[in-house]
Design a protein around this nucleic acid. Structure first.
Lengths: 232, 232
DNA sequence: CAATCAAAATGACTTTTGTCATATATTTGA
DNA sequence: TCAAATATATGACAAAAGTCATTTTGATTG
């Protein structure tokens, strides 16, 4: 077990389910949680398993993905500081429908199933936050479905690059601050690795992005937005 | 306003959020709801709008869809007896992300936003049911994402036919009991209408389905399952 | 700091899917 | 019930995306 993380950080984060939780509620969670770490590449939860608790990510980045035909990964979304992991399966009382793997060394709080339900029951505010959160995710999933069904690969790639940039921000040199292989990008976009590589070259030639090894920086967001046809 | 519907029907239905609700809770809802009807083809909720309440479908069938590029529909899922409509947007406090249109004459109960929140606050059981429901939907959405990203059109069509059959059942002649055009099926599968028509012909020639006009009946489920590669 | 390994890049080719045109069949509603 | 409208069906072709093979580049580590 690791050194305990400070739950108040999550309480302050507006996107967290613990946002605005009462001191009592926060205290309750602090008592029930334990702290764990995962190395880069380590599997945190495994598709098909029955989960025994939820994780609240304290620091690090995690990919959430399902395994399709022939074990091909489909990345559903990313999970990072303040986000919860594993709650879907526990709340719907179904086997885990998506696996999660750490993209970098990750620290998290673990809250056992029974404790999680206790917190939900004792804190209507938290319960409503969870409801809001899952409804928000549901809307995002709907957008992803429409995008996969109706856009071509280049449009989807442009969209994903914009999402990655706004989710993870940029490093000092302007590159998107996440370490993904072209294959992993392909697994988000829902296409072949070669197609992603080809289209990244194309976008680079068009001057919309630049790249150095696996790292990518956006150079012309508005054109990318136009390609992605994200009118929002 | 229509003749009032009996809420006990929803209470008894295991898939409904009102399942197992206390007599008090049920009574509270009965007081707050009004009853409404929609003609076939009528739009019930409209993408981008701000919803003022939720609908509980009493009888009828509704398609839920987002509008993609050039106004093309992407059907996300169907909503039928006992199901709620419009709650996602209200709970996540975002504009409606999907439109809903009645596929046949539909009767529903309307619960205004404020009443809906009141019921959630007064009935922890209902609140937890809603949470379970949205988490279940989230799992289904994840499956749909993987399917769209990794399966080819024929596999997805086979999958959709199996889903339609189990969701809506069959009429006396064995046809799937829902009235959809080939275009609407294409809008679920995420492909062109012609592709759906061609593949339906193909499946018919292979003896896996039969069809009469727009109606379709499954003849060989296990082969369809194999094509859909649904190992479950 | 090289040697090794893994990932990115690119070309050639195949398959799948989409588009457009047109013929045939089925619904629908007056 | 019959005509008009709508949907299904099919062919020909075009475009998009996937697969396989190979080269080049970048990352890793003893």
């Amino acid at each position: 077990m690791d050194t305990p993380h400070n739950c108040q950080l999550c309480q302050k984060q507006p996107t967290s389910a613990f946002h605005d939780l009462s001191a009592d509620g926060l205290n309750e969670i602090s008592q029930l949680k334990t702290c764990v770490s995962f190395k880069k590449g380590q599997v945190i939860i495994h598709e098909g398993a029955r989960p025994q608790g939820v994780y609240c990510i304290h620091r690090g980045k995690v990919k959430l993905y399902t395994l399709g035909t022939e074990g091909k990964e489909q990345i559903i979304r990313f999970i990072t500081s303040g986000d919860l992991l594993g709650y879907r399966s526990i709340l719907s009382d179904e086997p885990i429908s998506a696996s999660a793997t750490a993209l970098e060394d990750t620290h998290a709080c673990y809250i056992p199933k029974s404790s999680f339900f206790k917190v939900i029951q004792d804190n209507p505010k938290f319960s409503l936050n969870m409801l809001k959160l899952s409804c928000h995710e549901l809307g995002e999933a709907g957008k992803m479905i429409t995008s996969l069904a109706q856009k071509n690969v280049k449009e989807r790639l442009a969209e994903i690059l914009l999402i990655l940039n706004s989710t993870f921000g940029e490093d000092e040199e302007g590159y998107i601050d996440i370490n993904l292989t072209r294959e992993e990008i392909a697994n988000m976009v829902g296409t072949a690795t070669e197609s992603v590589i080809r289209l990244i070259s194309e976008l680079r030639k068009e001057g919309l992005i630049r790249s150095k090894g696996k790292r990518i920086a956006l150079e012309n967001r508005s054109s990318l937005r136009q390609i992605a046809a994200v009118y929002e």
